[in-house]
Design a protein around this nucleic acid. Structure first.
Length: 357
DNA sequence: GTATGCTTTCGGC
DNA sequence: TTACGGCCGAAAGCATAC
């Protein structure tokens, strides 16, 4: 089973203030540059009718909604995290195995819980939806299928407040008309390569010769695509207890190439990230920086050490060195935003286990 | 030729 | 007319290993 909370941040805001729920609700990340500088994080369905969606500039959204009753709100992550935790705890109760994906999605293995009975599974989904609505006043869309691949695609078919059940017998027919892009692992580039082979739908992918797929994509990917087209996916629902990376990014007050100024920002970002990792008693092997230029081009650099990094100072120095090197290579533009990321986590001595690592 | 791991970019929300 | 966040994991590309 895959559960997806509907237009999550905006829905939480509607819940907090029901007066706005008939209006367009737009949750925004303001960059601090004044006016309406910033981007839309999420919008409710009323706003989406006017083309307002995640990622577009706030000023653009305002212009699209100028003739509509609309509410623009700043993101309140603490609130969304709390509601998310509450809902995740409801979901966890019903799962043999539970896998949270981000703040608003989860996979539940319910095979044993419903005795492999699809009717029971559907009833369980209704119970779950009712409990989440009653306790947290939030709707979600649920997909049920024989595996994660099918369940996730199913959850995306009917939104918001949807429930889509795909029985093993129906899997082929359900998938056949859908775009290959619905398959996790097929992005824009792979979609293009498949199109060159005359493949656009999952049905066409299923009908395609396996050997030729392997010739084009290699054994691993070729077999994965072939299986996926038939709705075959053995990947387990697996608890994730540690994020794979921790990052922070800021928008600078003004575009600049002043290294000293940017180094000060890096210090702050690094300190913040470092304090979070220390709380969890983890160390890390990789440091990355991301720079977004004035033309919004994104450039990044990273460095992986052979053994875990201990100190905050090493993190800061590594990030600053990466930035200096990057700016030597990118000499054309001013810098608009700057970010620091750590990954490749290693547990400190004395801890038992870090799953997946 | 394929697998693996690292680096950089992409894309969802 | 233009407008532009912050975070995460996935995808893509490449080098090297087997």
């Amino acid at each position: 089973m895959h559960v997806d909370f509907d237009y999550f941040f905006a829905q939480v805001e509607e819940r907090e203030n029901p007066k706005i729920e008939n209006k367009a609700v737009v949750v925004c990340v303001y960059s601090g540059r004044g006016n309406d500088a910033g981007a839309v994080s999420t919008a409710n369905y009323k706003a989406r009718q006017y083309g307002v969606k995640s990622g577009i500039p706030i000023a653009f959204a305002k212009s699209r909604l100028k003739d509509v009753e609309a509410v623009f709100l700043p993101v309140n992550h603490r609130l969304y995290d709390e509601v998310s935790d509450n809902i995740m705890n409801i979901l966890r109760k019903y799962a043999d195995e539970f896998e949270q994906v981000g703040v608003d999605e989860a996979f539940l293995d319910i095979t044993a819980n419903v005795d492999e009975d699809l009717e029971k599974a559907k009833k369980l989904a209704v119970v779950i939806k009712e409990e989440i609505l009653r306790k947290e006043k939030i709707t979600c869309s649920i997909g049920i299928g024989p595996n994660k691949l099918v369940a996730k695609i199913a959850a995306g078919r009917q939104k918001p407040n949807g429930l889509t059940v795909v029985s093993p017998a129906d899997v082929r027919g359900f998938l056949a008309p859908l775009s290959v892009r619905e398959i996790v692992g097929i992005g824009r580039k792979t979609e293009g390569q498949l199109k060159n082979l005359g493949i656009q739908t999952i049905g066409q992918l299923a009908a395609f010769n396996l050997d030729q797929l392997i010739n084009t994509f290699g054994k691993n990917l070729g077999m994965y695509f072939h299986d996926a087209a038939f709705g075959i996916d053995e990947s387990p629902v697996k608890q994730r207890d540690q994020a794979e990376s921790i990052s922070r990014i800021v928008t600078l007050k003004e575009n600049t190439r002043d290294l000293a100024l940017m180094n000060k920002e890096i210090d702050e970002l690094a300190e913040d990230i470092h304090s979070r990792i220390m709380e969890q008693g983890l160390s890390f092997k990789s440091v990355s920086i991301t720079v977004i230029m004035e033309d919004l081009a994104i450039v990044s650099r990273s460095k992986t050490f052979q053994s875990p990094i201990e100190g905050l100072e090493t993190l800061k120095k590594t990030a600053k060195d990466l930035l200096e090197q990057l700016l030597k290579e990118e000499t054309e533009h001013l810098v608009r935003r700057i970010g620091v990321k750590i990954s490749n986590f290693i547990m400190e001595k004395g801890q038992t286990k870090l799953s997946d690592f």
